[in-house]
Deep mutational scan, measured.
Amino acid sequence: DKPLMPYMRYSRKVWDQVKASNPDLKLWEIGKIIGGMWRDLTDEEKQEYLNEYEAEKIEYNESMKAY
């Protein structure tokens, strides 16, 4: 599988927590909350997800070359 983009990594990490805090919200409403949370992160906080993505992207590209 292709590596997940940084925002999607963050979304997967916080989804269950946001859903548990807001059990009556629809999926798109939860997505909207998470989008706002992502925008509110500092560049340093986002960098963690970007670093994970870049590392996985290198691994993915290497595995595709071998294939």
Results as ranks from 00 to 15, higher is better:
1 D>H: 05
1 D>W: 01
1 D>I: 11
1 D>A: 05
2 K>D: 04
2 K>C: 04
3 P>F: 05
4 L>R: 05
5 M>D: 15
5 M>H: 13
5 M>Y: 12
5 M>Q: 11
5 M>L: 13
6 P>H: 00
6 P>I: 00
7 Y>P: 11
7 Y>G: 03
7 Y>V: 13
8 M>N: 10
8 M>W: 09
8 M>R: 08
9 R>Y: 02
9 R>D: 03
9 R>G: 02
10 Y>P: 00
11 S>F: 12
11 S>T: 12
11 S>E: 15
11 S>K: 15
12 R>M: 10
12 R>C: 06
13 K>W: 00
13 K>L: 04
13 K>H: 03
13 K>Y: 04
14 V>D: 06
14 V>K: 01
15 W>V: 09
15 W>R: 06
15 W>Q: 06
15 W>C: 04
15 W>I: 11
16 D>H: 08
16 D>A: 14
16 D>K: 09
17 Q>R: 07
17 Q>F: 05
18 V>D: 00
18 V>G: 00
18 V>M: 03
18 V>R: 01
19 K>T: 09
19 K>H: 05
20 A>I: 05
20 A>V: 05
21 S>L: 14
21 S>A: 14
21 S>P: 00
22 N>W: 08
22 N>H: 15
22 N>T: 03
23 P>T: 03
23 P>Q: 02
24 D>G: 13
24 D>Y: 09
25 L>T: 04
25 L>M: 09
25 L>Y: 05
25 L>A: 14
25 L>V: 06
26 K>C: 07
26 K>N: 15
26 K>F: 00
27 L>S: 15
27 L>Y: 13
28 W>T: 15
28 W>H: 02
28 W>L: 15
29 E>F: 00
29 E>D: 05
29 E>R: 01
29 E>N: 02
30 I>P: 01
30 I>M: 06
30 I>D: 00
31 G>R: 15
31 G>I: 12
32 K>G: 06
32 K>N: 07
33 I>R: 05
33 I>F: 03
33 I>S: 02
33 I>D: 02
34 I>G: 01
34 I>Q: 02
35 G>H: 14
35 G>N: 13
36 G>Y: 08
37 M>A: 02
37 M>I: 00
38 W>A: 02
38 W>T: 03
39 R>N: 10
40 D>C: 08
40 D>M: 06
41 L>W: 00
42 T>V: 07
43 D>L: 09
43 D>I: 12
44 E>R: 10
44 E>L: 07
44 E>T: 11
45 E>S: 04
45 E>F: 00
46 K>D: 00
46 K>H: 04
46 K>C: 01
47 Q>C: 05
47 Q>W: 02
47 Q>K: 07
48 E>V: 11
49 Y>N: 06
49 Y>K: 03
49 Y>F: 11
49 Y>R: 04
50 L>P: 02
50 L>E: 15
50 L>K: 13
50 L>Q: 10
51 N>D: 11
53 Y>T: 09
53 Y>Q: 08
54 E>H: 08
54 E>A: 08
54 E>N: 07
55 A>H: 07
56 E>Q: 07
56 E>D: 09
56 E>P: 06
56 E>T: 04
57 K>W: 09
57 K>D: 11
57 K>I: 08
58 I>M: 12
58 I>C: 14
58 I>T: 12
58 I>P: 08
59 E>L: 11
60 Y>W: 08
60 Y>K: 12
60 Y>P: 11
61 N>W: 06
61 N>A: 14
61 N>Q: 14
62 E>S: 06
63 S>M: 09
63 S>F: 06
63 S>L: 08
63 S>C: 08
64 M>S: 13
64 M>G: 12
64 M>N: 10
64 M>C: 13
64 M>L: 12
64 M>A: 15
65 K>P: 12
65 K>A: 14
65 K>L: 08
66 A>D: 06
66 A>V: 10
66 A>N: 14
66 A>R: 09
67 Y>F: 14
67 Y>Q: 15
